[in-house]
Design a protein around this nucleic acid. Structure first.
Lengths: 208, 208
DNA sequence: GAGGGAGTATTACGAAAGTTATATTGGATC
DNA sequence: GATCCAATATAACTTTCGTAATACTCCCTC
């Protein structure tokens, strides 16, 4: 049983190159080729291929938005990004949208084919520096932002308790100081972070 | 210039196998071999190898804790996990601690060597299903938790505004309803989530 | 040893948040 | 047609939060 593939790519040369090369292998069957996200969105839910190779920079709807919408209708289909973008935001967005693999356009045809196989077997093939970006993303999740640096150790301690949803009096009890002092600390925290309330402070200190 | 490698692994057979095979290549120089995290922690900061291949399950200090501590002292050293663990928590912890690559112990020696090279060149080599786990981790960051399901659409809408730090009156203005109504909605949200205030609700609805 | 910052504290006030009770409307269910 | 629930609203009330001004101590630096 061969792996069914669709390709969404606006550049004719790239599109045909991919299609022709992939078609050489009996492991694959190219079941759809689209120039725009709109076309792909209209057809993919009916074709339900195993894998979609998706460009990001398309005329009209971009590839990420296209994944988001197709994923809704055909949750079984897996997406391989194929793009020149290697900035953090695009990578992050693509994964959030539901992409499981991410290859840069300088990837060789042979490696692309290997990666599609790996994707189909439940892996998440990515170009080397994309993988590193993703690892760094995970490493930094929930990490304190640079804004925390302007706070004193005591202020950081209090902000962390504040972030847990504790009342002033609970904080004061835990730290063995008066609620008045807690109030002062928190007021200074707000000043330093340029915010007006607890929630804004938490968002600012711990990246949204 | 060859890549300097250290190995931390308690099982003698694995340890020696790695060391001997890696030493075969002139690209690498094994500069340290340790049986425990404690030994590694004592020596690694002085050796400062390019790469450390690190087991997780060690007697005494585990490999993740070991990375955390060594990373503090030698930020330039990169770590490759080499372990049987493939559960989400261990993978997540390892990356948080500062590991940049993650191989399972069923990986072939040749692939290990290739992965170490890739790591050294700034990539993040991982076994296929580990990569998928990490991608899924990123996909799910900041996602609403199951608690959100008990809320009505309107309540979800209000909770999202609440999470941005808006005042009741700002929310009421934005939704064109009275602050009294906002108050009621929020009160019901708290009831349904079994919490007493805004911050607790946010933490519960959007996984910490 | 004078100055500055961090941490502590007190008092006072106004704004915002959260609780409780009651009520109307409209849509869905039975 | 009756019942239930979501969404809306009003009113009265308590608690918590946030702002402001002032002050003392300790520690570090110049």
């Amino acid at each position: 049983m061969s792996i069914s593939i669709a390709i969404v790519e606006d550049l004719e040369a790239v599109r045909n190159g991919l299609k022709d090369f992939i078609s050489l292998s009996t492991d694959f069957l190219v079941v759809g080729v689209f120039k725009t996200g709109e076309e792909a969105l209209a057809e993919l839910p009916h074709i339900t291929p195993d894998i979609v190779i998706m460009d990001i920079n398309l005329p009209g709807m971009n590839g990420i938005e296209c994944i988001r919408r197709v994923k809704d209708k055909s949750p079984g289909t897996q997406f391989m990004m194929f793009t020149v973008y290697e900035n953090d935001e695009k990578v992050f967005e693509a994964l959030k949208a539901g992409a499981s693999g991410y290859l840069l356009k300088n990837t060789g045809l042979l490696e692309i084919v290997e990666s599609v196989k790996e994707l189909h077997e439940g892996g998440s093939p990515m170009s080397a520096n994309i993988a590193r970006k993703i690892v760094n993303l995970v490493r930094d999740t929930g990490k304190e932002t640079a804004f925390m640096d302007v706070l004193s150790p005591r202020e950081k301690e209090i902000l962390k308790l504040l972030a847990k949803g504790l009342l002033y009096k609970e904080i004061s009890h835990q730290l063995q100081i008066t609620t008045g002092t807690v109030r002062i600390h928190i007021h200074k925290i707000y000043e330093k972070l340029h915010v007006q309330n607890r929630t804004e402070a938490i968002n600012k200190a711990f990246g949204k």
